[in-house]
Design a protein around this nucleic acid. Structure first.
Length: 582
RNA sequence: CGGGGCGUAGCGCAGCCUGGUAGCGCGCCUGCCUUGGGCGCAGGAGGUCGGAGGUUCGAAUCCUCUCGCCCCGACCA
């Protein structure tokens, strides 16, 4: 492609609303432009890179026997009512009406549509297993789009669904996807970590996320460098010691005592004199609402509650912190004086963090403004509370598998594989007859990849102060060809000849034939970030050579004109790229 | 949804507090010059100051409402 006739609007200045590196560089490099919050136009360079990514995805999906579909984005209300997600999706779903007033949505994901097809067409176990996928635009009305392409309202997703008769079959489909995903991300130049993930509102027995470690990510993952354990902190556990140090020396259980704590409404205040109850001695009680019903979560005073864990514990599809009025209504006291003791009712469920099991001598709120209780025994006073892992793990705590120190860091989710089980086949009635002629719900898996996130993730991982450093496999072009002196006919001719020869050999070349100074071309080439840069200048040409530079490396090699094509082809292949068919 | 910030030329910003001819840098156009890391000089085009209403002789500037975007939090199969 000739840059002089191309639309590659590069920018010298950093757009102010771009915070993360991938956003800044994709805008500056002329790859994307914003249309609205969380909605981006893909300009030619981005589109080329995205096509490379989807081609890699497609080839690896096909390699595991998955079949590509293309499904509607517009989806009628009925099937979402069947699965129960018309209401569950809430404000995150884009909804609209047709001219007759019928409800539709823009699909956020395609479990319903694929299950709809499966239930009408799949009748016998003999038709199983099946793996179906598509690469389609998804719509989610995110509360807060951010970080350029990382969190958007419209994006491309490769989503696949497996249909099996048995759990073992599902396991096999799941593993096949895991391996396909490893290849896909590897080929795209992304280093990913597989982590155990929270299953979310829809349950499911197995859930693995593919994460790219980057500060631009929004997830927190805990991992062990020693044994390979890795989990989203929504799921991660750790080995921690919680000795029963506040118990009475002789092991006796002292009677529960109420004591006045006027004005004390924080863990901090209760630590100070005259109280002096350390955070570790306190039971922190948090009130939540799970699917409309009150939940109380009790954790140690110095711990953080992980809401995803509370959601898992409660089985609710949605949890949120209770409003102050709700708290007073249910607990009889304001936040700061709350406790779990005496809350033994059917309507209000109490969960207590597993580390607190068996402790005594603890302090907690009395559910009476200005009062706390001491000598709390978890065994005696909180037996109505269900023990569950609720706390957020912290860096440095012991790996649950091997005990070595965990590392906690930010990461970007680029893929998610998920054992759905019969969640959709049951609710939507997708069943087949087994060998015995008995009806069985189809066992499903669901697997997603965020295509633009691969693009942005690659930029997050591969860039420097000058711009992007594309992996060869997904670079919009394989190399940049820069004639440095356009006024020099020899230079122009040499560049044109190379352009022709390289293109004929299947190498994708971006020829910077603009009438610009060398400096401008160098700067733009670095910014756009193609893996190889060829500079054709008077100096080198005098010796019959051009300059070969790998983006991001210092050395410049002088290569004889006659060897350029072979070297370029080799570089494309070595970098995991593909020569264009010519 | 709660909190904060910002909307002035294509982009990045100043001007607003203290009302009185709308400015700077980059980019763009023309000419000259230069030609290996975003050259130099000269000339030029380009703005309903996000929108509506109000106060005032007069509003980019003050007041009210509203829309949009960004950030933090909440939320995120």
């Amino acid at each position: 492609m000739r840059l002089s006739k191309s639309f590659v609007p590069t920018l010298k200045e950093v757009p102010t609303d771009a915070q993360v590196v991938s956003h800044q560089l994709l805008v500056r490099g002329g790859f994307i432009r914003q249309l609205s919050a969380g909605i981006y136009s893909m300009l030619p360079l981005a589109q080329r890179a995205l096509l490379k990514i989807t081609e890699i995805v497609r080839s690896e999906m096909n390699a595991i026997g998955a079949q590509e579909f293309y499904l509607p984005a517009l989806s009628p209300r009925e099937i979402w009512e069947e699965s129960g997600r018309w209401s569950v999706m809430g404000d995150n779903m884009f909804r609209l009406k047709d001219r007759k007033g019928a409800d539709f949505c823009l699909a956020m994901t395609h479990e319903e549509v694929f299950t709809f097809i499966a239930r009408t067409e799949l009748r016998s176990y003999r038709q199983l297993p099946q793996s179906w996928y598509q690469i389609q635009t998804k719509f989610r009305d995110e509360a807060r789009p951010k970080s350029g392409l990382l969190r958007v309202r419209q994006f491309t997703m490769k989503d696949s669904y497996s249909f099996d008769l048995t759990r073992e079959g599902l396991d096999a489909s799941f593993e096949a996807h895991r391996h396909a995903y490893e290849k896909i991300f590897g080929r795209c130049g992304l280093q990913t970590v597989q982590v155990d993930a929270h299953s979310g509102a829809m349950g499911g027995s197995g859930s693995t996320e593919f994460m790219v470690r980057t500060d631009a990510g929004e997830d927190l993952i805990a991992s062990c460098s020693d044994c390979g354990y890795a989990a989203n902190t929504e799921k991660a556990t750790s080995k921690i010691e919680t000795p029963d140090v506040y118990a009475a020396p002789d092991g006796a259980l002292l009677p529960l005592e109420e004591f006045a704590t006027p004005g004390v409404v924080t863990i901090e205040a209760l630590q100070r004199q005259p109280y002096g109850h350390g955070a570790r001695k306190q039971l922190k009680s948090l009130v939540y609402v799970g699917d409309g019903k009150p939940l109380v979560a009790i954790i140690r005073g110095d711990d953080q509650l992980n809401e995803a864990k509370l959601q898992t514990a409660s089985g609710a599809s949605e949890v949120r912190p209770a409003h102050p009025e709700e708290i007073v209504k249910w607990m009889g006291a304001k936040p700061g004086s709350l406790g779990g003791i005496g809350l033994n009712t059917n309507d209000l469920r109490v969960f207590i963090d597993a580390r607190l099991a068996g402790l005594s001598g603890m302090v907690t709120g009395a559910n009476k403004d200005g009062f706390h209780l001491r000598n709390v025994s978890v065994v005696r006073d909180l037996k109505h509370a269900t023990s569950f892992d609720l706390r957020q793990v912290l860096e440095g705590e012991g790996c649950p598998k091997c005990g070595k120190a965990l590392v906690v860091g930010k990461a970007l989710e680029v893929g998610h594989i998920f054992k759905l089980g019969t969640r959709y086949s049951e609710s939507m009635g997708a069943k087949v007859l087994d060998e015995a002629g008995k009806e069985q719900p189809i066992i499903m898996g669901s697997y997603g990849i965020g295509v633009e996130r691969i693009l942005a993730g690659a930029v997050e991982l591969h860039h420097d102060a000058d711009g992007i450093r594309w992996p060869m496999s997904i670079a919009p072009f394989h190399l940049a060809l820069l004639p440095l002196q356009m006024q020099d006919e020899e230079v122009r001719n040499a560049a044109e000849t190379l352009y022709r020869e390289l293109t004929a050999a299947g190498v994708e070349v971006l020829l910077d034939d603009r009438d610009e100074r060398a400096g401008v071309k160098f700067k733009d080439a670095d910014l756009v970030g193609l893996p190889v840069r060829l500079a054709v200048g008077k100096k080198g040409l005098a010796e019959g050579k051009i300059e070969w530079k790998v983006r991001g490396e210092k050395e410049v090699a002088l290569v004889p004109l006659a060897e350029v094509v072979a070297k370029a082809k080799a570089a494309v292949i070595a970098g995991g790229g593909k020569l264009a068919s010519v």
